[in-house]
């Protein structure tokens, strides 16, 4: 099932929350990245039908996101941390299943499954009021999974979860994506999303500034130099030859590790390959340094700013 934004604009009084956003999000995991106040939560709220756009349309499959019919197809894990504190985790998830229309017996079974998926079966009978932040996050995720929706909207799902829990959660989300679910995960911690998925939507000041895989996004940025780290032998001769190339912007040699900056990565890679073959350089290691989401994100932020 697809989540579609068509020219969506949302105002909060005179302040614009999201500005003319158009995108389609399909099966698999999509990371929604942006700094605080960039418009991630607004986008999530529009998708979950909490807000109505001032312009454009948000659709869940064939239904408008605001409609009750659309809600049957989404599971939403909000960024708030409040629940019915007097309930146990099991009771809460069961209640949410029943509010999705399941009879008691099936709701209980579904709640057990959802709790098992988030690793809360053994702690499900604890009162939510006494649960840790991580446990609350898991309960929140369980309630979004309990009715097996085709679309999952997860607002900052990793916040407060310990590293082991993050790994488990990542595995769960990957498994759910493999089952054909559409998963939109928002985060401002880029490393979180980078580990989960290669597909990104980057948002800044209410606009989508980039989308696609990290490499594709990186390719869009032609005015920012790529940094490439090379460990090769003989490194000094390689450095001298690379310095001749018009693609190379700068060179830095420290402790036999060569760092090259280039504005034309594709042409640089081709030239490096030719050099390595022709002069029999022994390239031990070759890595691009700033293709990580943080670097891309920072570039885009600067670009929009």
């Amino acid at each position: 099932m697809w989540l579609t934004f068509e020219h969506v604009t949302k105002f909060y009084g005179p302040v614009i929350g999201v500005n003319d956003i158009t995108c389609r999000i399909g099966p698999g995991i999509t990371g929604l990245l942006g700094a605080n106040g960039a418009g991630k939560s607004t986008l999530m709220k529009l998708a979950s039908g909490q807000l109505r756009p001032n312009g454009g349309e948000v659709r869940i499959g064939d239904h408008r996101a605001w409609s009750a019919a659309a809600k049957a197809s989404i599971g939403f894990s909000p960024d708030i941390n409040t629940f019915y504190e007097e309930m146990t985790g099991r009771e809460f998830v069961t209640s949410m299943a029943r509010l999705s229309g399941y009879p008691l017996r099936e709701a209980r079974e579904r709640a057990e499954l959802a709790l098992a998926e988030v690793g809360m079966v053994d702690r499900g009978d604890r009162r939510i009021g006494g649960c840790s932040h991580g446990m609350r996050q898991r309960i929140k995720l369980a309630q979004s999974l309990v009715h097996d929706p085709p679309i999952l909207l997860l607002d900052e799902p990793m916040t407060g979860i310990d590293p082991g829990g993050r790994r488990d959660l990542s595995r769960l989300l990957v498994a759910l994506a493999e089952r054909g679910k559409t998963i939109l995960v928002s985060s401002h911690l880029l490393v979180e999303v980078e580990q989960l998925t290669d597909s990104m939507l980057m948002i800044a000041r209410g606009r989508i500034v980039a989308s696609g895989t990290l490499a594709e996004v990186r390719g869009l940025i032609d005015d920012q130099p790529f940094a490439v780290r090379i460990v090769a032998r003989p490194v000094r001769r390689l450095a001298a030859q690379l310095a001749e190339l018009p693609e190379v912007l700068s060179l830095d040699l420290q402790d036999d590790v060569l760092t090259v900056r280039t504005l034309m990565p594709a042409r640089f890679y081709a030239a490096l390959g030719e050099l390595a073959l022709a002069d029999e350089f022994e390239v031990e290691r070759f890595e691009t340094l700033d293709v990580g989401a943080d670097a891309v994100f920072n570039y885009l932020q600067q670009d929009v700013g």
């Binding site: 909490q50 019919a69 809600k71 939403f76 909000p78 708030i80 509010l99 999705s100 309630q143």
Partner: peptide, 12 residues
């Protein structure tokens, strides 16, 4: 308590 959100995202 902000729990209204959990009701508003149900198919009711």
């Amino acid at each position: 308590d902000r729990t209204l959100l959990f009701l508003l995202v149900r198919p009711i």
